[in-house]
Amino acid sequence: MNKQVKVLIIEDDPYICELIILYAEKSGYKVDIANDGMTGLEMFYDSPPDLVILDIMMPEMDGWEVCKEIRRFDKTPIIMLTGKGQSYDKLKGFKLGTDDYLVKPFDPNELMARIKAVLRRANPMFDANEIIELPLLKIDFQQYKVTYEKQEIVLPPKEMELLYFLASYPNQVFTRQQLLEKIWGVDFEGDSRTVDVHIKRIREKLGNSNAYWRVKTIRGVGYKFEVDNH
């Protein structure tokens, strides 16, 4: 991703906070800490994170209330971190909108894996960092740069994400609905013509008639990034 992922930890146990900070920063995340629910909510609104790790049993305001407040206005991914392992608590968390649930004591490596999985579900492009190079074309997603025939082409974020995603899966067909979910998210309320408009703009900027690759329309289905392997 072209920006550092920010994680907000709302947890009153200093040892657990230190442990998560150690592993999260090692994984490349920026970390903010709040030791009670009220402070956590204030930090959430003052400087919105990409993901929240939320304890249940805390002073001032418990994790259930914090989760409920966040979900009133926002869909930022939340991982519940708690000593309660009963199925009732898990169900309650998921009903409130928690994305994942981890019971203490936990393996910090497992938490890092779950963070990555939850972030990827929320935004499939979050950890995209590969440079894709083809004849005439170079896509550097981390820098949000596209070079076509040695000229830098400016693409708005969604066009960039759509091109990078398609080029990451050469010769694989995606329906318009799949592309909407992957690039705009499962909660996007627009229609499939959004994809068509963005494909048209990409083609206008990069052309679509060279001998090496093209964004191809699969009639009645969707699109694929077709690459000539010969």
Rank of each mutant, 00 (worst) to 15 (best):
A117G: 04
L136V: 09
L134E: 12
M112S: 09
M125Y: 02
F126C: 01
K116A: 02
L119G: 03
D107C: 10
Y101G: 05
P124R: 14
A113E: 13
F106D: 11
R120K: 14
D127Y: 01
A113T: 11
Y101E: 10
M112I: 15
I132V: 03
A117C: 03
F106G: 07
A122H: 15
R114H: 13
D127N: 05
D107L: 09
P135F: 09
R114F: 07
V103A: 06
L136H: 12
D107Y: 10
R120L: 08
V118W: 00
A128N: 09
M125E: 03
Y101H: 07
R120W: 04
N129L: 07
A122C: 05
R120M: 08
F106A: 08
P108D: 11
D100N: 13
M112W: 09
D107S: 13
K104W: 06
R120H: 12
L119D: 02
V118A: 00
A128H: 07
K116N: 01
D127Q: 01
I115R: 05
E133H: 08
F106W: 10
L136Y: 14
F126K: 00
A117H: 03
M112P: 09
F126E: 00
N123D: 15
P124F: 07
E130A: 14
E130L: 13
R114S: 13
M112Q: 12
K104S: 09
A113P: 02
R121G: 06
V118F: 00
E110N: 06
P124G: 11
V118E: 00
F126P: 00
V118G: 00
P124Q: 12
V103M: 05
A122Q: 13
E110H: 08
D127A: 01
R114T: 15
M125H: 03
I115K: 07
I132N: 04
I132A: 04
I131T: 15
P105V: 04
R121Q: 15
R120V: 12
L119T: 02
L119Y: 01
A122I: 03
K104D: 07
N109W: 04
P105K: 04
A128I: 01
L102W: 03
R121E: 15
F126T: 01
D100G: 04
I131S: 10
F126N: 00
R120D: 04
N123C: 09
D107T: 03
A113Q: 11
I132C: 02
V118I: 05
R121C: 08
L134T: 06
R120P: 01
A128M: 07
R121I: 10
D127G: 01
I115E: 08
A128F: 14
R121P: 02
N123M: 05
A117D: 04
R114P: 10
P108F: 08
L134N: 08
A128D: 05
L111P: 11
L111V: 12
P135D: 15
K116P: 00
R121D: 14
K116I: 00
L102H: 03
A113H: 09
F126V: 02
I131Y: 05
D100M: 04
L119S: 04
D127V: 00
I115T: 08
P108S: 11
L102P: 02
F106K: 06
N109A: 09
R121F: 09
A122E: 13
P124E: 13
L136M: 12
V103R: 07
L111W: 11
Y101I: 02
P135S: 12
N109Y: 05
P105M: 05
K104R: 15
F106V: 08
L136T: 15
R114C: 10
A122Y: 13
P108V: 08
E130K: 15
